[in-house]
Design a protein around this nucleic acid. Structure first.
Length: 109
DNA sequence: GACGTGACGCTAC
DNA sequence: AGTAGCGCCACGT
């Protein structure tokens, strides 16, 4: 399989960093925006290298964060003004649109 | 190199 | 609407 390059990691990091406070994004959206082959890769990257990133703004497709992080993450989101309803976030209204971002740096793929 | 693992996602009950 | 099952891809052992 195609191993993850540093460039891929940097793109994901840049995308996550570009999510404004008060908005969230899903792993799938980030994977698509970064042109990754699978959303799982985003999860792996976050687990591996999430330091100094607003990782709390990344949720699953169902609007719920990973179980072990849910408590902290939802609390942080709420402090940013994100509406949290019953441990869940209304993606429909605050999902960040990566399509509105400037084009990603060119890749050699 | 096979086997298990996981910050995921979609479809089917 | 909630749960379960399977596919997915890269990584560590």
């Amino acid at each position: 399989m195609a191993p993850i390059t540093d460039i891929q990691v940097e793109r994901v990091r840049a995308l996550v960093a570009s999510i404004p406070a008060g908005f969230v994004a899903t792993y799938g959206d980030i994977a698509a925006a970064a042109e990754l082959s699978s959303p799982r890769i985003v999860g792996w990257i976050m687990r591996t290298d999430s330091a100094d990133l607003p990782w709390h703004r990344v949720l699953g497709a169902s609007g719920k964060p990973a179980p072990h992080l849910a408590a902290r993450q939802l609390e942080t989101l709420r402090s940013e003004g994100v509406a949290v309803h019953d441990g869940r976030v209304p993606l429909k209204s605050i999902r960040f649109d990566f399509g509105a971002l400037p084009p990603l740096p060119p890749t050699d793929h």
